[in-house]
Design a protein around this nucleic acid. Sequence first.
DNA 1: ATCCAACCGGATATACTACG
DNA 2: CGTAGTATATCCGGTTGGAT
Length: 361
Amino acid sequence: MAALYSFDQLINYRFNIHMSNIRTFDLNLLRVFDAMLRERSVTRAAERVGLSQPAVSHALARLRSLLGDPLFVRQGQGMAPTPRALQLEPPLRTALSRLRSALQGDEEFDPASETRAFRIAMSDFFATLLLPALIRRIRSEAPGLCVQLMDLVPRNYLAALERSKADLVLLPELSFPDWAEHARLFRSPFRMVARAGHPRLRAAGRPPRHTVPLELFCDAPHVLVSPEGRARGHVDRVLAAQGLSRRVVMVVPHFLSVPAIVAATDLVATVPERLAWTLAPQLGLVVREPPVPLPAAQISMVWHRRAARDPAHRWLRDQVAEVLRPLDAGRPSAPDGPGTEHLHPAMPSPPLTPSSRGQPR
DNA sequence: ATCCAACCGGATATACTACG
DNA sequence: CGTAGTATATCCGGTTGGAT
């Protein structure tokens, strides 16, 4: 794969032109150089670039002076490139090609040949939903791409996007700033989980509609997921609005540690429904409806407006949407009854925006 | 804002060079 | 030595920057 060079790299490093000469460097000289490499003749190069033969000869003289190399020497009926000229040919071609694409605005994205890294910020739970299928697609269609998973810290995710530290962020829908664009992916309801032998649940018996009794929910020790380490989440605020409270005895930054903690203790937790149903059978957990109705979290992907038209970015967003959107249609249903939907307990009170402008492009 | 000299790039004319 | 091709001398028009 051809190395890629910025203009500065081309001029400074590859062409070895001192900074003081860059300001006055005539880009047309690069066109002449390119034409000379193609034609190996001053006269034909002149025809190619639409100049007279002496004009190209003069341009060549200026290039020779700038680069400190003859570049082309007479050989028979034409001009033979020097080793230095041949050395400069690949970066010159690349730079001119990219410049042409940029100016014409017709840059194409070829997944098979693209080499770049994408940084995606999301919770560990979303990562388990998305990454295996996403990486399978990328390995087969765009093997040169690298995906870097970043920790999701809600308070900082917008700053990460704005400062280009992250390319894409997956999170429950909040109100987004003007420069952000987003697309809805799927809805994520929540369930309460506890170990099957939990004494309070056993004493409560099999509850009607599988909703955990309110007093049990409030009395039981809770483990709360908060990437920011907050001791109160959205569930606490909803309870407080009804004059109620619960006991949070443990705060963890990641979702995936919760089921094991719940399985080994008498703690309970409110987690994404999909996580609950995935891990409940193997860890011996019971899944219950929380006693307070909460709307499901609307999970969206967010990106900076500056990346909106970037072809590689658009391709990546399409892949993420294709992998995650089916989750909305094919949500797992409770094996022992229907459920109401509940909001993420640890998310900072999201004002659900009615936006539908977010489409993945 | 205007003028003007200096500079630059390109054109024409012509000198120079390599090759068959 | 003729031909094809490159390099150079000179001129011209446009741009730039300093002086007024």
